[in-house]
Design a protein around this nucleic acid. Sequence first.
RNA 1: GGCAGGAUGGCUCAGUCGGUUAGAGCACGGCAUUCAUAACGCCGAGGUCGUGGGUUCGAUCCCCACUCCUGCUACCA
Length: 472
Amino acid sequence: MSKFYITNSIPYVNAQPHIGHALEFIQSDVVNRYQRLLGNDVFYLCGSDENAIKNVQAAEKAGMDIQSFIDEHAKEFQDLADALNIHFDIFQKGSDQSHHKASQKLWELCEKNGDIYKKSYKGLYCVGCEEFKSSSDLDENGECFEHPGKSLEEVEEENYFFKLSKYQDFLLELIESNTYEVVPEFRKNEVTSFIKTGLEDFSISRSNRRAKNWGVPVPGDPEQRIYVWFDALNIYQSGIGFGDDEDTYSKWWPANLHVVGKGIIRFHAVYWPAILQSAGLKLPKKLFVHEYFTVNGQKMSKTLGNVINPLDMIKKYGADALRYYCLAKISPFQDGDFSEEKLVEAYNSDLANGLGNLVARVAKLAENNKLIFEDQPLAIDPDVINFSEKFQFNNALESQWQEIAKADRLLNEQKPWNLPREEAVSVIKDLIQKIRLISFSIQPFLPITSKNILKQFSGEIKSQSPLFPRIV
RNA sequence: GGCAGGAUGGCUCAGUCGGUUAGAGCACGGCAUUCAUAACGCCGAGGUCGUGGGUUCGAUCCCCACUCCUGCUACCA
C-alpha cells in the first residue's frame, strides 16, 4: 500500500458550477476511487480560488460583501460534489487564514532563494473597469469593449516578479524526461514547445489598489498582495498542512496527480514546478489534462444561455447516469459534446437496456430458482486497470459493457429457464459471478450502482425494481 | 503568421507499418421472443474514408497543394 495524493483543480468561485465542473469532478473522483480500490492510502483535495480580483468585482456587482459571496459560491461547488457522491478529504478555501500563512511561507522560501525581485509593470488601465487590460481585451480602436470612447491610461507600478527564466532548462528536462509527466502526450508537447520559445519572469504581486485590498499580503510589504497564480496553486499544499502541520504535509506531499482542464495547463506544468523548485520543495509526479464540454455542439457561454446546470441533470436522471455519460460517452482527451438528448440515449441503451436489464433478468431467474449465492472473490478486470492507469475511462467502461453483452448472449444461448433446476442453477450462478465482477470493476465509475448490484447479488437473491427505469 | 492535431456511414469513434467485400456502438428497418425495463438475441439497409494533384501494378492509409475545424503562441483565470 502506498500513499496517493490527488488534486482536483481549484474552481474559480465567481459563478455557479456548470457541467464542465461536473466533468472534472467526476474524472478526478474515478481516479480517487480507483486508487482506493487498489488499496492505496489516498488523499483527495479540492478547494476554491478565492483571492482573485474578479471575485471582488463579481461580489460588488451582486451587491454582497466579498466573503459571503465567496462562501456562497464555494458552497455550491461542494453541493455539486455531494450530489455526485464525491467526497473530498478536504475542501481548502483560499480565503482561509491557514492558506494565507502557507502562501506567505512559500513566498519567503522563494525569496530566500533569490527568485523574487521588484520591477515596474507598465500597463493600460481602464478607469471605467478599474483594471488593467491586455491588448486582447481591446477593440480595434484600442479601447475597452465596455467603455468605448474612453482612452486607456498608461499606468506604471512596482510589482514583485518571479524568476521563471532561471528555470527554463530545468523545466524542459523535467517535462521531457517525464519526471513530471504531462498526459496526454500532445499536451506535453505543447508545454515543451512553450518552454523552448523562452520563458519570461512573471508578476506575482499587485498593489493594494489593483487588488482592492483583497488577497494575501506580501510578507514584509503591506502595500502589495500576492497575485493569483503564486497563491492559488499553493492551495494544493495548504490543504495538507503546509506551513502549519508538517507531519501531515510530509505524509502527502508531493502530489501524485494534479487533474486540470486544458485552459490552465501552463500554470501547472511550468509555473508551479518552477515555484516549488525555487522553494526547495518536492515536485508533483503527474498532470492529467482533460478537455472541455460543448453543449449541443456549441461552446458554453452565458450570452448564448446554453450553460447546463449539472444539478438539474442529476435530479432528473441520477448521479450515476451523469457520471456514466461523462466517463463513457466522451473521450477524455478531446472536447466532448453534452446534450440532454444524448444523455437520455446513453441512459436507455446502456444503463436501462444494458446493465439494468441484465441484472433484472438474472435476478428474476435466481429468485425463481430460490437461489442462495455464496460470495466468491472479486477482482478488478485487467482491462479496467489497464485503461484506468491511462485515464481512458471511456475504454475502461466499454470493456465492461462488452462483458455485459457477452453475458446477455450467454443467457440467450443457455436458456436456463428451459433447463432442469440443477443445471439452471449452475448457469445462473456463473452469470451472477460475472455480473458481480463487472459491478466490482465499475465501482470507481458508478459507485452507487455498483454497491446496489453487489448487495442484491449476495445471499438470497430477489428480483427488485429496475436500477435504471427506461425513459420514454 | 508560426507550431501541433484533426476532417471515415444520421451521430460518436476505431482502423489500415499501401493490397481481394473499410469496422464497432448508438439511432433506423425486419425476424424471433419472455428469464428481463416493448428490454435481450439474430438479420439488414447505410460510407466515391474533406478537395485537387502525385508516387505505385494498386492509396482511405505515403508525398505536395488547398479548404475547414481545434489547441498553443505568457502576466483574465
